[in-house]
Amino acid sequence: MSKQKVETELRGIINLCKAVTSGGVEPFDVDVDYILSVIRKYYPELQDVKDFCTDASALKELSNVLQRQNDWIQYKSTTLYKDPFLLNQQILRMEISSIAEAFLKSWHPVVEMEQLSAKTLAGSLGYWADLIPFGERWKEPELQLVDAEIATLEDAKMLGFLLEEGFNELLEAFWSELGKKVGEEGKIEYWDWIGADTYDETIRRSYLTVFLVSYGYAEIQIDRFSETIEITRNKIQKSNPSKSKLSIPTLVDYEEWRRWRKE
């Protein structure tokens, strides 16, 4: 038997099985036993790796057909199954308006709303007013030659580029402050802890609190039902690097701060 004939026959089987998988041919229109006998018949004729690969592909596609036949039986046992031939005949028999009527009875469109409101419009107008004109944003920066000077560590600290003390010392001082504020209960409401007289200071405290929690100096608990967030002070630092970390986003925006100040 010629090598080319074997190749053609196996390719034919692969294409037929692929047509079943794509829905072009009904799964039970394929005689699996017959196809298997054809694959078996040509097996002794296979000569090289390419032939064996084609043979393996044919078997794989045939197994997909069997899968499709299994799905088909399962589908036929469901209440959704209706004979495709009967369904097609009914569609051909029905007037367009009757088909449309049937569809409308079973159609429940999704309700979608656009988010634009007076509030978002006002916000957008504010943004527009603050937006720097395009020409200015793309303007080439004007560079000026200045005399460079050397700054000392003290100068950098004075200018606010460097902290007065180390970050660890800062964090430990913050932890001690937490200890004084939480009292005997050992916990404090989040905003009562981070809230300060100025918004800038509130942000700074919120930022440091993130490190207090991350480094195990304190814990944060959120009760979504009562919408409360509490900070619990750990008496000793609980550092556990192997423990999985969970990010808890907390909103510290200006409006929220103002509301807290009024309260």
């Binding site: 794509s22 369904l87 367009i96 449309a100 569809f103």
Partner: peptide, 25 residues
């Protein structure tokens, strides 16, 4: 009305073909 009917036919036909069918059909 014929857009709705067309959609109904396409959906019903695809359902009858177990959820997928070649576009040409």
């Amino acid at each position: 009305v014929d857009d709705i009917a067309g959609l109904a036919v396409a959906i019903a036909y695809i359902i009858s073909k177990q959820g997928k069918s070649p576009r040409i059909e």
